[in-house]
Amino acid sequence: MAAIILISIGVIFNIFGCIGLIRLPDMYNRLQAATKCVTLGCCSILVGVMVHYGLGGAGFRALVAIPILFFTATVAAHALVRGAYHFGTKMDERSVKDDYMEAVK
């Protein structure tokens, strides 16, 4: 039962992330919302799998998947946002500040 609740929480977070992927105005905000929500949602699903199987073979496999997912998702998001800035993606017109512009030049 606890496994079902955790998986439902994960799916709800994933829904938030995908709404953010559609609604937000520019690439940086989309990446930010989607990465956070989808990563934590999938981690929640994996914790649900671990609770469902107990601490056996499959449970430990799900437990190992969680840190791998965290590291890879955050680092991929960082590399992608840096690459997009160097590519020349414009920020939204509501942006108020850009300190990085001097550092690049």
Binding site: D26, Y28, S95, V96, K97, D98
Partner: peptide, 10 residues
């Protein structure tokens, strides 16, 4: 209304 005010800070 989507309360966003994005920017890059150092």
């Amino acid at each position: 209304a989507m309360p966003i005010r994005p920017g890059i800070v150092k």
